[in-house]
Design a protein around this nucleic acid. Structure first.
Length: 423
DNA sequence: TCTGGGGTCCTAGGACCC
DNA sequence: TCTGGGGTCCTAGGACCC
């Protein structure tokens, strides 16, 4: 049976989440900012209509914000993650196999449902249900490959006549859409590839689909060859229900204010490594390799620049925050140079092992901390309870470098004191 | 003054071995 | 002493995505 995929994608997701609890903002332009209130990462449809571009630094649109009364929000990930969960659970109730692809989109496997219910009707039903139950608007694209489903979803978003659902299982409709799709709008084709393709005279998705797979393979790579095949309706990417275990965990941040002292930098790295260790334990993995990097701002070209990173192995894989802090502090001491305005620091954990599978050598001493597992478990539980935080002294208390979040909305769904009040 | 963060996959090239 | 080629493994860097 030939496969059928649906891509369900939430419209303007972060902006929609912010509006969900603020009915007064229903028709107001809303933008959501990146961490540190740096640039715009989401826009409501009203903000898009005003021409606010994705990724633009906030300071460049101050005039428009004032002029049009645009509402600005710092990103509130716990809110978005919670709304996302509700959407995904609803999808899982409606389709037998679901791949959660990102915080705001999911692929569904619709193979074989056709004789029972029309694909278009099913798409409409999904859209209606998410709208009624959660209050989030989604668009649905349906096609025989993931790449085409993405394209169908784009079309559903772009053309209002589709009412948010496009069934692209028909070959003729596929080619019609491909013909009016610029090559850079294809999933998997970014700026660089697009430029090279244009130079070869490949301007539309249809141009790419009609190029020989062999020549694309030669000039580019298997990745683009796969994209080409998918554009022709040949499914080369399967639905992946079970998320693959991570290969690496990165925690990094730009500072809210420049860091110039070693003590503050230690606190920041400590904080990152602590978060990374939490994520690692959530994955039920232990890491053997740790990297630390620090750098000044590449945008400040009138001040001296420094950027450096170092990696080191632990003697054995660990998920104990104390081991990771210790090693990261050693690396930081080697990296640190006085006299710079540091803008960002981060840590990377990699080389993962399932807990208990690492082969120690015969003469390895018994593991470092006897109470490690229990202690980390207790710390994680307290920190997730919402009732308070336990942290390591090194993380510091007065954090001048902490992330800027001046426009944060309340935690409507995950904190009691963030609950909406009805008067 | 102010420009995000967290990932994946693929390829080329060097090191090393036989 | 000189010369050759094939294979594997690892890493860095590039490109992409949301």
């Amino acid at each position: 049976m030939s496969p059928v995929f649906a891509l369900v994608d939430c419209n303007n997701f972060y902006a929609s989440c912010e509006k969900l609890f603020r009915p007064d903002l229903a028709d107001t332009p809303v933008v959501v900012l990146s961490n540190n209130d740096g640039c715009v990462v989401a826009r409501s449809k009203e903000a898009k209509a005003l021409g606010i571009k994705m990724g633009i630094p906030i300071f460049k649109i101050q005039a428009q914000i004032r002029q049009h009364g645009i509402q600005v929000f710092s990103s509130n990930y716990s809110l978005y993650a919670d709304i996302s969960d509700r959407v995904m659970r609803t999808l899982e109730d409606m389709a037998p196999r679901v791949e959660i692809y990102s915080i705001d989109e999911a692929f569904l496997d619709l193979t074989g449902i056709q004789p029972v219910v029309s694909l278009h009707d099913f798409g409409q039903q999904v859209k209606r249900t998410i709208d009624r139950w959660i209050g989030i608007t989604v668009c649905v694209g349906i096609a025989p490959s993931k790449t085409l489903a993405k394209l169908a979803n784009h079309a559903a978003k772009k053309y209002s006549a589709t009412q948010g659902v496009v069934d692209l299982t028909d070959r003729k409709r596929q080619r019609k859409l491909l013909a009016i799709t610029p090559v850079e709008d294809i999933w998997g084709v970014g700026r660089k590839l697009s430029a090279r393709l244009q130079a070869m005279g490949i301007h539309t998705a249809l141009d790419l689909a009609d190029t020989s797979a062999k020549s694309i393979r030669q000039h580019f790579s298997v990745v683009l060859e796969r994209t080409l095949r998918e554009l022709n309706g040949e499914s080369c990417m399967e639905l992946e229900q079970i998320p693959a275990t991570k290969q690496q965990i990165i925690c990094s941040r730009s500072f809210g204010a420049r860091v110039t002292s070693r003590v503050q930098m230690r606190q920041a790295v400590c904080e990152h490594i602590t978060r990374a260790a939490e994520k690692l334990r959530q994955e039920r993995q232990q890491a053997k390799l740790l990297s630390v990097f620090i750098r000044t701002s590449p945008y400040q070209n009138n001040t001296p620049q420094y950027s450096n990173g170092l990696s080191a192995e632990l003697s054995r894989p660990s998920d104990d925050t104390r081991d990771l802090i210790q090693l990261s502090m050693r690396l930081l001491e080697q990296l640190w140079r006085d006299g710079y305005d540091y803008a960002k620091a981060g840590v990377v954990l990699s080389d993962f092992y399932d807990i208990g599978t690492y082969q120690t050598d015969l003469f390895d001493k018994a593991s470092g901390h006897t109470n490690s597992r229990q202690l980390m478990h207790v710390i994680d539980r307290i920190n997730h309870s919402g009732r308070g935080k336990v942290f390591f002294a090194r993380q510091g208390i007065k954090k001048n470098w902490a992330m800027k979040r001046e426009h944060l909305s309340p935690a409507y769904t995950t904190r009691w004191n963030g609950l909406v009040k009805v008067n």
